[in-house]
């Protein structure tokens, strides 16, 4: 049991460091003009924590854990919808520009 759980932890750690490295390179490639939308997107995807909240809210019946889970689902959903929508709004403004300039040209 102990050996197994430490193995799981090491796998998690491997995934973690590799993801940090990917994140490092991907984020440096983001153009500074889009740093605000970047915050919007990262905010939305960090709410993937909803996965944990759904698991907690999953079982039938009502106990403390389920209530916490449901609150977690509500909070994360605010972020998911809010984050992606506000990013969409920001990006669509950048979009309009290109079209407009192209039309002018």
């Amino acid at each position: 049991m102990e050996a197994h759980s430490s193995e799981v932890f090491v796998i998690g750690l491997t995934v973690f460091f590799l993801a940090c490295i990917i994140g490092y390179y991907v984020v440096w490639s983001v153009t500074p003009a889009l740093h605000s939308p970047l915050m919007g997107v990262t905010n939305a995807i960090s709410s993937v924590i909803i996965v944990g909240a759904i698991l907690a809210a999953g079982p039938q019946g009502f106990d403390t854990s389920k209530i916490f889970g449901l609150i977690g689902v509500v909070l994360a959903s605010v972020n998911i919808f809010g984050g992606f929508l506000v990013t969409y709004r920001m990006l669509s403004m950048f979009k309009k520009k290109t079209k407009k300039t192209k039309e002018k040209e």
Binding site: G12, A19, G23, L38, T42, N43, I45, S46, V48
Partner: peptide
């Protein structure tokens, strides 16, 4: 999100948390 990912041994949470964490740190 990463911390929760480790708790639940969930790679998706770990990866996403690390991406967001790295992004914020670079900014």
């Amino acid at each position: 999100a990463c911390g929760i990912g480790f708790t639940l041994s969930n790679n998706l949470l770990i990866i996403t948390g690390a991406l967001v964490g790295a992004s914020g740190a670079i900014l």
